[in-house]
Nucleic acid binder design. Structure first.
Length: 640
RNA sequence: GCCACUGUAGCUCAGUCGGCAGAGCGGCUGAUUCGUAAUCAGCAGGUCGGGGGUUCAAGUCCCUCCAGUGGCUCCA
């Protein structure tokens, strides 16, 4: 806590200095007096921990601190001010538009309007209006109004009236004027529109109406920077991110493709399949060590199975259904029913627990057409799935192992991840008490793991709470991959039992879990993460052996064959183009190792190796190179 | 599913006012035999997303369906 000065009107600053404001001196003026060198970067202030405008005049003693774009709070203020600028521009272009609200988000801001559907020319015109406002350097001026005046001011805007009605009786109603545009707002704001020089509109879309029966609102999204240089940097980063898009790389590297005739159903091409199989091997090796057994269960089940599992009631809309001889069947959207049936197929003993059953089967989910997104959201997918049938005591140690394994796996891929704890949804199976218990267990495990996590109330699966792992794509959008779900409901519904040491019959708990999630989404994320530069162990083509001329075609074939015998994916290239051209092709393919053999190498049994990402080439013996590569592959090293 | 936008050669894209469908890359053929990010020449390749309409004439205008993109909703 900031120490309050006893002396009336004395203002404490972050470095411990105290200043006495002259009458009417604003926070901005005080801060400029305190630190003139940094004054230009200050866009707002904290007064006793509360964000205020620089124009705010502190009447009493208190603590004052500057806010800049570098501070999260300052960043948000600039985003929010940018939203105001959008509203000003949009109302200039479409005077009958009703602004609703325009908050900052994780990565920018938006402003929602009740207005006819927008068009690209609208956006263009709005942008131009915003630029005019920025050039005019219009100040954000705060006014506080009596409620009645505020109601009159916004009489034509029911959304703003609702905010006024919802605000606390004792709260001042404040509005901000910006070059003739007035918006209801708590503030604070940047001093003037010139601060918004680096604002950039990202697009617009319809959003669901805030209330039933209302018409959809139009959302304009954007991001703000205090300077054009910072905006340019951002745009450049985005451009680079677009080049890493897995859909682009997947096409270039021939990893997968989609066709209009099967929307949302990926075709894995030979190169992509190499990656999937390597990932499968990576996970399967772990399963063997960690005491899992593998199973294979049907892709189709009669409706009654889903009625038992609860999917019929809670997931039917997302299922592909089909009729077989007058009976309704559904393609399985998850592997759990099959695992439940196997557990229940004969009497079980506590000695068999924990029973860990893994199944990598194709799953079908009828995702809405508008949500499909390359490999990141598909309708047919394969999870690295397993179900752990456990006693109550085994829950914690089993999940702890899973959390460790997730950390280890992410380290292998150098992926940054975050955990999310999702709790009981509105539509759930079983008793609230079971849920509380399960949620408490997961929370305790996460707390104990020391990894920060987010809590999402109401986001759990219908049968239990879960810990989700989130990975981000190249544009920073988060995607759920791995998941750990604790389920007391399905075992009960399937009447699963085991005989305990006490001779009695007990119902096991089930941990549903995936580590990488699905091959589809994981390969998609990983493609963007590595930008198509696959770690050698995953690279579809690991070594390209190039002869300098036809004369060394035999040498190239021999070298490639030697490497293949070591289990390396090596191919000998032809000499159908100039060497620089063939090197270029292999570089663009992101092959980790390009080996050149010419006359010299043929003579002395060496190879000239070009390692992806390294400058130049180096010479080594064939045996040395073979050992080098196989060691890289064995250790699953990230860099070649 | 909702809103907006987009769909032309394998890929990236041009195609003006409605008037003969184009380029680069890739592919194929030939020449070149090349020392670490593009050798040269020639050739092939198109139901202009599908269907319907307007028109003497449609890649271009209108309707409709499909798919994709960005959001929303939903979710691994």
């Amino acid at each position: 806590m900031e120490e309050r000065s006893a002396a009336t009107g004395e203002v404490a600053l972050p470095d411990g200095r105290r200043l006495v404001p002259s009458p009417g001196e604003s926070a901005g003026a005080l801060l400029a007096r305190w630190d003139p060198a940094r004054a230009h970067a200050m866009l707002a202030a904290l007064w006793d921990g509360r964000p205020v405008d620089l124009a705010y005049v502190p009447g009493t003693a208190g603590a004052l601190a500057p806010l800049t774009f570098e501070d999260r709070a300052g960043w948000e203020i600039l985003q929010h001010s940018s939203a105001h600028l959008v509203a000003k521009g949009l109302v200039e272009v479409i005077p009958e538009a009703l602004p609703t609200h325009g908050p900052p988000t994780d990565d920018g801001f938006y402003y929602d309007f009740d207005v006819r559907p927008l068009t690209p020319p609208d956006l263009q015109a709005i942008g131009e209006a915003m630029v005019r406002s920025v050039r005019a350097k219009e100040p954000f001026v705060r006014r506080e109004l009596p409620r009645e005046d505020a109601r009159r001011l916004f009489a034509s805007n029911p959304y703003k009236l609702r905010y006024i009605a919802a605000s606390a009786e004792n709260e001042a109603i404040s509005v901000y004027d910006t070059g003739g545009f007035t918006d209801l707002c708590r503030g604070p704001h940047v001093p003037d529109t010139h601060w918004l020089e680096g604002v950039h509109l990202l697009g617009f879309s319809a959003v669901e109406p805030t209330e039933a029966g209302g018409r959809p609102l139009q959302r304009v999204r954007g991001v703000g920077f205090p300077t054009r240089e910072q905006l340019s940097k951002f745009l450049k980063l985005r451009e680079e991110a677009a080049a890493r898009d897995h859909r682009t790389i997947g096409q270039r590297q021939e990893l997968f493709f989609f066709t209009e005739q099967a929307p949302g159903f990926p075709f894995w091409l030979p190169n992509g399949m190499v990656i999937v199989r390597e990932l499968e091997r990576f996970v399967t090796e772990h399963l063997r060590k960690a005491g899992y057994a593998e199973i294979r269960t049907p892709l189709l089940f009669a409706r009654s199975i889903y009625e038992t599992s609860g999917h019929w009631e809670h997931y039917k809309e997302n299922m592909f259904l089909t009729r077989l001889e007058d009976q309704e069947f559904g393609w399985k959207p998850m592997n759990c029913p099959g695992a439940m049936l196997i557990f229940g197929s004969r009497p079980r003993s506590y000695r068999e627990l924990p029973l860990r059953l893994a199944e990598f089967a194709p799953l079908h989910r009828l995702e809405a057409s508008g949500t499909l997104h390359g490999l990141l959201r598909v309708r047919e997918l394969v999870q690295d799935d397993a179900h752990l049938f456990v006693t109550e005591e085994q829950i914690e140690p089993e999940i702890r192992v899973l959390l460790d394994w997730i950390r280890e796996a992410c380290a292998t891929f150098r992926l940054e991840y975050s955990f999310e704890l999702s709790t009981r949804p509105a539509s759930f199976l079983g008793e609230a008490g079971d849920w509380d218990r399960a949620e408490a267990i997961l929370a305790r495990l996460l707390d104990g793991s020391g990894v920060p996590y987010r809590r999402s109330a109401g986001e759990g699966a219908f049968y239990g709470p879960k810990i989700d792992i989130h990975l981000k794509d190249s544009l920073g959008r988060p995607w759920q991959t791995g998941t750990i779900q604790l389920d007391f409901q399905q075992p009960r519904r399937f009447r699963l039992q085991y005989q305990g040491a006490d001779g009695g019959l007990h119902t096991p708990a089930v941990v549903h879990r995936t580590i990488l999630g699905t091959w589809e989404r994981f390969v998609g994320i990983l493609t963007e993460h590595v930008g198509g530069r696959w770690p050698p162990w995953l690279a579809p083509s690991q070594v390209r052996v190039l002869p300098v001329t036809d004369g060394q075609a035999g040498t190239a074939a021999t070298v490639a064959a030697e490497l293949q015998a070591l289990g390396v994916r090596a191919t000998a290239g032809a000499s159908d183009a100039t060497l620089p051209k063939r090197v270029r092709d292999a570089e663009l393919e992101r092959v980790p190792y390009i080996v050149v053999v010419g006359e010299r190498e043929t003579q002395d049994g060496s190879v000239s190796v070009r390692v992806r990402g390294a400058k130049g080439s180096r010479s080594m013996s064939r045996a040395e190179f073979g050992a080098y590569v196989t060691e890289k592959l064995r250790r699953r090293e990230f860099d070649p």
